[in-house]
Design a protein around this nucleic acid. Structure first.
Length: 416
RNA sequence: GUGAGUGUAGCGCAAUUGGUUAGAGCUUCGGAUUGUGGUUCCGGCGGUUGAGGGUUCAAGUCCCUUCACUCACCCCA
């Protein structure tokens, strides 16, 4: 037997309608916030991610599904959505001459990591990006959108964490300060962090090892290094969130693992997940467009992990709306009635009534049993067949009426 | 990539210190005087105990290898 590859899974009927509910809720929320849906390729040129996400990131260094296609081009299954959205906007001139774009999409992402709770090799993200607007109001639009989505889904006990990671002007200075500081504490850092010291010192702040964390406590404060523009932007984002009534936690330690982030970085955490506790993450990325070879297009966005949202919603007993169900089950009393039963079933379906019938020749009793989970059983036997009628039984009330088969749909609709 | 834990029927489980033919429950299918479901009762289907090797008179049980799953590290959605 061939099984699904590690880190992938099938979303079966028992679950798929819940996924549809999440996506539908997201779609409505996006619409209310003025975001338009787009569909993007699931694979892109490898270069898009190596340049956009950053050569030294974990994603690019060891997590991408990369292969050469038959034309010898290096192709990568998208590990995240933002780079692709930016590529799309640049390629289609969505943000020229001062225009902005609010775009959302959802679908599978791929990262070759060891699977664990809330982490899969093929996982699903709902992604929103606001492109072309450099000001803090755009950041607030995006963050409030993500929080509103979770409010509508009914998620409880979430924590929003926010930080500013500076821009190309002030981050190099801060980086230099960090390197100086951590170099003086080399003996207290773990091996990984020693490596990070040369490559990406900001990430040391994010290390969960106690010794590193302890050293990081005394590290220079990024807020002291922010340039005036970044400082002001950060203050405006915070003020904007507060005006909308959101509470959040400031964290100087929040450093996203992707290189393209500038200024705002944020995550939304849930205590009802495992170690992978982020249900959404995002921020501003004003350098991404030039990193992938386009003109200057600022942007801010977030990605939400659908798999993780699902875990939290199940954990918290959230509602997924109404499960799909069959309203009417047409039952054949004998073999001679089976064709008429299929005709009736089709007529009900044409009228918009979810209807079902047995196609495998099961007994009358077995058909009635299946009808038991439906609201109506529509029974046809020899008597009904010759009279052109159907016996419609209300399975909840236990009552039954013999009516012309031509009026069955109308009869059922009137009683729903 | 590293570590730990777990693999018995479609599902969740049981099987004395290694000891007959691996068992019930749920699901599913069928039946209970031949045109009426849910409750109840009866019955059927269903397993190479993840796979391979070893120890033993004897392995679901012990050992090794391998695979898968789960959780954690790392990192992130």
């Amino acid at each position: 037997m061939i099984s699904a590859p590690r880190g992938t899974r099938d979303i079966l009927p028992a679950e798929s309608w819940k996924w549809a509910y999440i996506v539908k809720t997201a779609s409505e929320t996006m619409k209310d916030f003025g975001f338009s849906e787009i569909h993007l390729p699931i694979f892109e040129h490898t270069e898009l991610f190596s340049r956009g996400v950053g050569e030294t990131t974990d994603i690019v260094e060891k997590e991408m599904y990369t292969f050469n296609d038959r034309g010898g081009r290096s192709i990568t299954l998208r590990p995240e959505a933002t780079a692709g959205v930016m590529r799309c906007a640049l390629e289609n001139n969505l943000c020229v001459q001062g225009a902005s774009a609010k775009l959302w999409n959802w679908g599978p992402m791929f990262r070759h990591e060891r699977p664990q709770k809330g982490r899969y090799r093929q996982f699903y993200q709902i992604d929103a990006e606001y492109l072309g607007v450099p000001g803090a109001m755009a950041d607030v639009e995006v963050i409030s959108l993500s929080l509103e989505l979770f409010r509508r889904l009914g998620l409880k006990n979430l924590e929003a964490v926010i930080n500013s990671v500076g821009c190309e002007k002030c981050r190099p200075l801060y980086r230099k300060k960090l390197v100086e500081y951590f170099s003086a504490h080399k003996d207290e850092l773990c091996e990984t962090c020693l490596d990070r010291l040369g490559r990406n010192p900001l990430r040391i702040l994010d290390c969960k090892k106690e010794s590193c964390s302890h050293v990081a406590d005394g590290a220079p404060d990024i807020y002291d290094s922010l340039c005036d523009e970044c400082r002001e932007h950060f203050a405006e984002v915070r003020a904007g969130l507060e005006r909308l009534g959101f509470s959040y936690r400031l964290s100087k330690r929040l450093v996203r693992g992707l290189d393209y982030y500038t200024k705002t970085a944020y995550e939304i955490l849930s205590g009802d997940l495992g170690a992978q506790n982020a249900v959404a993450g995002g921020g501003r990325y004003d350098n991404l467009s030039s990193a992938i070879g386009g003109g200057k297009v600022p942007g801010v966005g977030f990605a939400c992990g659908v798999d993780r949202v699902m875990i939290v919603m199940e954990e918290q007993g959230c509602s997924f709306g109404v499960a799909p169900e069959i309203t009417a089950y047409a039952v054949a009393l004998d073999d001679a009635s089976r064709p008429a039963v299929q005709v009736l079933t089709y007529d009900l379906r044409k009228a918009g009534i979810p209807a079902e019938c047995d196609a495998s020749g099961r007994s009358f009793k077995a058909q009635m049993k299946s009808a038991g989970v439906c609201r109506f059983a529509c029974i046809i036997g020899s008597e009904e067949l010759s009279a052109g009628t159907v016996s419609v039984k209300d399975m909840k009330a236990g009552t039954q009426e013999n009516i012309p088969v031509s009026s069955a749909a109308e009869y059922i609709k009137a009683r729903l």
